[in-house]
């Protein structure tokens, strides 16, 4: 069966500008072909996933204010069903990485990413999150979040306007539409990976789970609980 064009209801396909990456991927998918049952199921799953992306409230600096604007009356990303911002990383689907990430924050962001449940996506908002931005010359800035975690969509701007953020969200929705749940092995790497090799990444995750979260230092739980 022919793989369909990626179509999302929220925005016309021709309104998207940079499409080479997704087009090429679509070609690749078509060359392989898919089973009709599987593809129908995949369509259903992707429909659900791309229409219900719950962001984690994560904002370090300026772009966070534009993110707030996005949730408020004028831009209202509730229209697309994205407004269920979860504060717990376990329940969120996407990290809106709004703002500069510095050395001290880097491990925290990485841990947040590790704490999230699959499928999880990352969007880098603003020049700082993309590549250091105006703070390129600083001694304490991480030059882009993709040095720490893989990024799906980059939205440039300093800070990006809420409209640009919505555009980025739509791109992410399209990207999710191309995912395959049932034919995982064939799936190419959708997101750019950071420097760590898979083995060490796995080890990292174990470590994170062993070293209990800052918020649940178990020693104190026991003490606090018995009081």
């Amino acid at each position: 069966m022919e793989v369909k064009d990626i179509f999302i209801r929220n925005m016309k396909t021709e309104d998207f500008n940079e499409n080479e990456y997704l087009d090429e991927y679509l070609k690749e998918l078509r060359a392989n072909g898919v089973n009709i049952v599987i593809s129908k199921l995949d369509d259903l799953i992707n429909w659900g996933r791309s229409n219900s992306v719950w962001p984690l409230t994560f904002a370090t600096s300026c772009c966070g204010i534009e993110f707030m604007c996005l949730g408020a009356a004028r831009y209202d990303f509730a229209r697309f069903g994205w407004e269920v911002t979860r504060n717990s990383p376990r329940q969120a689907d996407v990290v809106f990485c709004c703002g500069t990430i510095v050395h001290k924050m880097a491990p925290v962001l990485k841990r947040l990413y590790d704490q999230m449940a699959e499928p999880k996506y990352v969007m880098a908002f603003g020049s700082c999150a993309i590549g250091g931005g105006p703070f390129k010359k600083s001694y304490h800035t991480v030059m882009g979040v993709d040095q720490i975690i893989p990024v799906d969509v980059y939205v440039p701007g300093c800070p990006p306007r809420p409209d640009a953020m919505i555009y980025g969200m739509m791109q992410l929705a399209r990207k999710i539409k191309l995912q395959e749940f049932f034919s995982l092995p064939k799936q190419p790497e959708l997101s750019r990976h950071c420097g760590t090799d898979p083995q060490s990444a796995e080890k990292e995750i174990n470590n994170v789970q062993e070293v209990a979260d800052q918020a649940h230092n178990d020693k104190n739980i026991e003490k606090g609980g018995s009081e």
């Binding site: 259903l44 799953i45 429909w47 659900g48 996933r49 219900s52 069903g81 269920v84 689907d93 749940f181």
Partner: peptide, 8 residues
């Protein structure tokens, strides 16, 4: 859609 997502 939320339910489909959350189930998987």
């Amino acid at each position: 859609a939320d339910m489909v997502k959350i189930l998987l």
